[in-house]
Design a protein around this nucleic acid. Structure first.
Lengths: 212, 212
DNA sequence: TCCACTGTTAACCATATGGTTAATCCTATT
DNA sequence: AATAGGATTAACCATATGGTTAACAGTGGA
């Protein structure tokens, strides 16, 4: 069950042990959730003794914090990077974020579920970690929407509503996948086809909703 | 920490004990997730001995299954009831489902988070529970969209895409609330105002996206 | 060569937790 | 009143689990 072969003498040591632990934790936490995850399994997957986990990270909770933060930093900047860009117009932003995010979550299937699950069972953590963030990159998008509306290019749209709708439409299939698959009959590779179609359809639909 | 006063002699017994346990489990599971939830806490909250939990439900997992299924049945039928209705046109369906669902999730804040978290950490359960469902209520909506498109009232839209977008836009704010609140500055009662605005804005936007 | 210090491990510990058991209570039926 | 059977409890149990400890290995510097 641990997928770690012998011969970890030299090959394994190339990577820093702390890093290996973090990656193992990342894998185990994401697939099991921090509550169900076992420190022993993390140690196994990293190919080291369980005591090393505490040697480097102190407690399971601290390690979980580290992993959670690391994962948040993995997709939040992508989103804000696009939404807050000053060189893309709204249409380009929508198309780009839909494409990139769908591809990203597809290749990281556990990420969103993990984040939502953690947000739900450990609601305080987000405050603990995100507190130091200060600059609102949404302001740029807000101004952009405002300008476009005044120029008559689009309908007037509140940023919060816009962002929630866009991101919700992107994230939903990944979060509720098992339900969706069942009730929309997206079994087998049809779910993948659905996602592929969505990369094209969703931007059209969103931009269609913005038409004046 | 348990919020149960003395005097449970007569007043408490009015309700069936099994039911009290189920409700307590529902509360504890939803707020903590099944992994973090403690059977002792459930027993406390129900005001009974922990052994009764096993007397009635066998194992913690079985109780969790019961609660999960109960919660699923709590919101899935609402959705399908509206989407699959034969007496509402598309516009009415969108308006009604947005209004009703936002109000519903607002008064059951833990529900969606719980479902997603469980879906994530116990992906098999959904198959175990939902298997016997056979009729696709989405077929009605699908036909309706088809007809409206042919009549030139709306653009052509695949059901799966439509439903995913609609439901995603509704659910997202509740699922990622802590993040949203932070990055869109929706602190305090501004989140509530956001939701209230959304009940009006979202149907307009969705229907706007459907315009031919 | 010896020392000191970091990294690493096997063995161990305390405790939380799901689950069990045997006895007791309660109530309806005879 | 006696009894049977379900409901309920206090006490108990086995084990999983996060965390600790003491010893050991390796390595670079004095």
């Amino acid at each position: 069950m641990d997928g770690r072969q012998a011969g970890n003498d030299s090959a394994a040591n190339e990577q820093d042990t702390r890093e290996r632990l973090l990656e193992a934790a990342h894998r185990v936490f994401l697939r099991a959730g921090t509550a169900k995850a076992r420190t022993q399994e993390i140690a196994n997957e990293a190919g080291v003794n369980k005591a090393l986990l505490h040697y480097y990270f102190g407690t399971k909770a601290a390690l979980a914090d580290a992993v959670f933060e690391q994962q948040m930093m993995r997709f939040m900047p992508r989103i804000f990077g696009i939404l807050g860009s000053t060189s893309l117009d709204i249409s380009a932003k929508v198309r780009k974020i839909v494409h990139e995010q769908i591809d990203f979550y597809r290749s990281h299937p556990y990420l969103l579920g993990f984040v939502v699950a953690e947000l739900h069972t450990e609601p305080d953590r987000i405050a603990r970690l995100i507190a130091p963030a200060g600059t609102p990159p949404v302001a740029i998008l807000s101004a952009q929407l405002q300008r476009a509306a005044e120029a008559g290019e689009i309908r007037h749209v509140p940023v919060e509503q816009f962002v929630s709708t866009l991101m919700g439409a992107i994230a939903f299939p990944f979060l509720l996948q098992p339900i969706l698959v069942n009730f929309l009959s997206l079994h087998g590779d049809r779910f993948d086809a659905f996602l592929e179609e969505r990369k094209q359809w969703l931007p059209d639909f969103i931009l269609g909703g913005l038409r004046p």
